[in-house]
Design a binder for these strands. Structure first.
Lengths: 340, 340
DNA sequence: ATGTGGTGTGAGAGCGCTCTCATTTAGGGT
DNA sequence: ACCCTAAATGAGAGCGCTCTCACACCACAT
């Protein structure tokens, strides 16, 4: 184990109490902002804390209070995917924004392939009071275990939302994708293809459903579908397959901005002009939508606000707020740029 | 505070001990893999643990052992910057790779503007056994406090590396940038400009120093310098300034791949062909170097390996390994692609 | 029989905090 | 003067674990 390179020991509550000439309990009250301490005592205790540069020990505190004041963000994806997609950046930003207003801290658990087990142990070991889960797949069974242990809020409708007792924040992905695809129909496109997200994720499934629904309503073919994995490279490959199979498409609905960057690359490479030859509508309205040489028309979802809402929901759950709604469905809107 | 939505209480060591008919101490030994327990006892205790689905409580453990088995990665940048730059993704990946082999967990602290204080409190509250710091700036005084509290390993030479008792992993940024700039000289460019990183960061300063050194050796002008902030947008603006001030440049050394994407955008926009009109050499060899339409010639640094090395160094420090070297300088190499 | 030296196990004292009570103190009311 | 109440404080029992000892036990040698 090792003796740890010698460090000056941190001051304890006990020491502060001695310094201030009061009991441990009183110092604890001051630290926790209890109203029932005489003002002058508060002052002297605060001074003692200052003098000793005291910081309460988290382990002791959480052992005694059975709370950790921290929450986890569980992301069942590998690092590359997590860092590669600006969508995650936005969500995390929203989450931290809300958390910064509280005194909870965030624990990022990007649980790729193997350490799924390790992550669960970490969570169950009482390291956090609650969890936020984003980008979960059908196969992610660990979620059920998690929910029996602590409050959980999902980003995106959970795959097993049968009981309706899950808490989650989402957009109406079907309506969102419908607005995007409808736009393609409205501008006169008739042979519309799509690059989908993973079909083991609600966001992937629902956006595909929206696509189909619009085309069926319009009496158009719905066979130009290729699946991808929410990565640029995966979308590029899918786009190649699609162009090979359906060379006649005049429009493309891509289930995320990041994937659209991949698709646009292939389109350029094959000499298909956007939007003239092929109009493209993407999804997310993340920075990826405007980083390229051509601005993307995309279904905008308030990713950052969703992160904020998730954290807010969880915090209220942790505060035993009885009034919290189980689901928070946020609005999407179509943002028109150059690609369609 | 709230009573926490009722959850089945987690089993404790005590309960496992009762279940297995041994003492707490023995269960503790089994859990911690002590060799001095009779094999048959190990079996029965393990069975009891399994039966109760026991997971040790981290708070209690760390209170008693004075260790947390987790380390922090402190990044004094805002979220957007952190998520925007693939360099960070690579480093984090390397860190987690090393940590996954151990039983330490990572705590990501992306400490933007305000919560610097909050971060320090978190760290000093004994939440982690040690810290990794990347992307630190001259003004980041909190680092000194940190070092007096726990072992710290830096990614990149610390700004105050006076005492030489800091631990860090880095590349020779001066030599690295020299190799890149020298290449520009070697291919016959004579009016070479640079977009630098922030000059309050060693990586920014050193890469600029390398730039200057090569040009001075070659008897070329070193005035075509514009400062940026390691973001694509910042670099784009700097490139515009530079082209305005020195329209005659025939080569550009950009201090990071991400910044180079911004520079290339401006170059394209202004109709300067790369590499014909302006040859570009970047730095990092991150995915950003190959994601664009033109492959970047770039100074490759082993970002992921550096993350791995940082974590490795810290873990050895935590294990009281006396033999750890204070600094680990890793090699760079020039990767030739199309941009120069 | 007695001693000697392991080796596995249990008892028990904390780790630094919170929180329930009991106790003290001050302030009315009669 | 008295009692009664309310407010401020302290004493002390844990929270679930680790870790130091002391002890019991079993060879094996004397």
């Amino acid at each position: 184990m090792g003796v740890r390179n010698a460090r000056p020991p941190q001051p304890t509550l006990e020491m502060v109490a001695a310094e201030a000439g009061v009991s441990r309990a009183t110092v604890s009250r001051v630290v926790n902002g209890s109203p029932k301490v005489r003002p002058e005592v508060v002052v002297s205790v605060t001074a003692a804390i200052e003098r000793l540069n005291y910081v309460p020990n988290r382990a002791a505190r959480s052992l005694a209070s059975r709370q950790t004041q921290s929450v986890a963000l569980v992301v069942p994806e590998d690092m590359t995917k997590f860092f590669g997609d600006p969508y995650f950046a936005a969500v995390v930003q929203g989450i931290t924004q809300r958390l910064d207003e509280s005194d909870y801290t965030l624990n990022l658990l990007v649980a790729s392939t193997d350490p799924r087990h390790k992550t669960m142990r970490y969570l169950r070991a009482g390291n956090v009071d609650g969890a936020l889960v984003i980008s979960h797949h059908t196969g992610d069974s660990f979620v059920a275990d998690l929910e029996s242990t602590m409050p959980v809020v999902f980003g995106g409708r959970p795959t097993n939302d049968s009981g309706a007792n899950n808490y989650f924040v989402d957009v109406d992905n079907i309506a969102g994708s419908m607005s995007g695809v409808q736009h393609l129909v409205d501008i006169g496109r008739r042979r519309i293809g799509t690059i989908t997200g993973p079909v083991d994720m609600p966001a992937g499934i629902d956006r595909l459903t929206g696509f189909r629904r619009v085309l069926e309503n319009a009496g158009l073919a719905t066979d130009a579908v290729e699946h991808a994995d929410f990565t640029a490279a995966g979308a590029a490959a899918a786009t190649r397959r699609l162009l090979e199979r359906c060379p006649d498409i005049d429009a493309l609905f891509v289930a995320s901005d990041l994937m659209a960057t991949g698709a646009l690359g292939v389109l350029a490479e094959q000499g298909r002009a956007v939007p003239r030859d092929i109009a493209v509508v993407a999804y997310d309205d993340s920075p990826a939508a405007i980083s390229g040489s051509i601005g993307m028309t995309t279904v905008s979802q308030p990713s950052k606000e969703m992160g904020f809402a998730m954290a807010d929901l969880l915090l209220r759950l942790l505060a035993d707020d009885e009034t919290v709604p189980h689901r928070n469905i946020m609005p999407t809107s179509l943002v028109l740029r150059e690609s369609a």
